[in-house]
């Protein structure tokens, strides 16, 4: 589906959201609380069919965390990027989407491991690469006195 057309369908489904079709791919910003609901609609709606979560990552923006989801429909060939801000920087929590796309289970574990974002209803939220008790290295305030050289 073309970008503009996809933007119209999304605007119809989520009238409160601002859909941006000017960039490389269609993007929109969603509320953290709605993310699972929106994701389920995106996957199951017949006109959208986003069945492939090609990417999921977090960004530490110092005052808040952002989670970015990249979705692609292997049937209809279109892409959408969803961004959501987690306002609570001390204790970031967001709903999992691992029940919708199995790949999310492991990508979310990676985000939890390296960034410390917790996912509610995640079936197996353990550290993936690092040991328990290690800090969250991808946070901007992460300090490692031994291995870091400050310039």
């Amino acid at each position: 589906m073309e970008k503009e057309q996809l933007g119209l369908v999304l605007a119809e489904l989520f009238p409160t959201l601002e859909i941006n079709t000017s960039g490389d791919s269609v993007r929109f910003k969603a509320d953290t609380a709605d993310i699972h609901k929106i994701a389920a609609v995106l996957r199951d709606d017949k006109r959208l069919q986003f069945d492939y979560l090609f990417n999921l990552y977090g960004v530490d923006r110092e005052d808040r965390f952002s989670m970015i989801y990249g979705l692609e429909s292997t049937i209809l060939g279109h892409i959408v990027v969803i961004e959501t801000d987690i306002a609570d920087h001390d204790n970031p929590i967001i709903d999992t989407v691992s029940d919708l796309w199995k790949t999310a289970q492991y990508q979310e574990r990676e985000v939890y491991d390296l960034m410390g974002v917790k996912f509610t209803n995640h079936p197996d939220l353990r550290r993936l690469f690092l040991e328990d008790g290690w800090g969250f290295p991808l946070r901007k305030d992460y300090k490692d006195d031994i291995n870091f050289i400050e310039r």
Binding site: N55, Y57, V59, G70, T103, Q107
Partner: peptide
């Protein structure tokens, strides 16, 4: 500011 790699092997492993 932030760089992320979505690597194929990561997803193929699980």
């Amino acid at each position: 500011y932030r760089m992320h790699f979505r690597t194929p092997n990561f997803n193929n492993l699980f």
